[in-house]
Design a protein around this nucleic acid. Structure first.
Lengths: 129, 129
DNA sequence: GACATTTGTATATTAATGATGTACAAACTA
DNA sequence: TAGTTTGTACATCATTAATATACAAATGTC
């Protein structure tokens, strides 16, 4: 289940959104499925329900959720957007910085590469066409 | 050269530290080499020199720089720390979230995997032993 | 050697952001 | 119908970021 790292530099609502997005991408949820209510998830995570609501709003903005008042959050059918030329560029920067942190902490390029391939497979399915 | 993204959610001083760390990891600088002064880099980036100083302090804490008063920042000889079992764990979370964002934006697992391998090679050298 | 300049640092201030407390209006439930 | 549950809106408080300003020590120039 989703876990909140209070020591992290990224805000709690963003941690929630990031974690849920990863699960959504991996296909863990089907369209039409209901998400836990903001209050239920808030209690589960030990945060305020407004914080969860903010995360849901972000995911709704990205097209993942339909957020109907008094009905809870429902997983939407979402067509994958087309990646423009800048999409990969936006991806490169944080990727490089993340890898640099890993290497600085003593991880080897081999370990990193293995884990990255593994994670891409876990989230996105096939890698080698 | 290093660029600051004002629209980014990560703070400016952290962007600077991240970018410089990536260059340090890649071996672009040699021990003993001098970094630009906080004021010079600040003007270059269009930020306040205290912001650059904060980034330098972070890198000094990580062992990358020696920060002697009135002398500027000097690249240190730094022995790679040993990666504990938790090191990889700390790496996994942000990696998954980053990959999820890429996939959500329309990038394919193949593209992502290729770019990740490429970046690991660029920063860390050999990947296949 | 005297003196202006250059260096990183320390402190105060201001603005922005995050997380929570509280209240509310609409929909469901019994 | 009455009470509960839902996402939302608004106010508040604390933390963080970025800057302005001043300072003390080292360097360079004459």
């Amino acid at each position: 289940m989703l876990r909140i790292d209070l020591g992290s530099r990224v805000s709690v609502y963003e941690q929630i959104a990031n974690g849920l997005r990863a699960e959504l991408v991996s296909g863990k949820f089907s369209p039409g499925e209901k998400f836990p209510t903001v209050r239920a998830l808030a209690i589960n995570l030990g945060v305020h329900h407004n914080t969860v609501a903010e995360a849901y709003r972000q995911l709704a903005n990205e097209g993942w959720l339909e957020l109907r008042r008094h009905h809870g959050a429902i997983v939407r059918e979402r067509d994958k957007p087309a990646a423009g030329p800048d999409t990969m560029e936006r991806f490169k920067r944080p990727l490089e910085e993340l890898i640099a942190k890993g290497l600085a902490d003593g991880l080897t390029p081999q370990l990193l590469a293995g884990e990255m391939i593994e994670a891409a497979r876990r989230l996105g399915g096939k890698i080698f066409p």
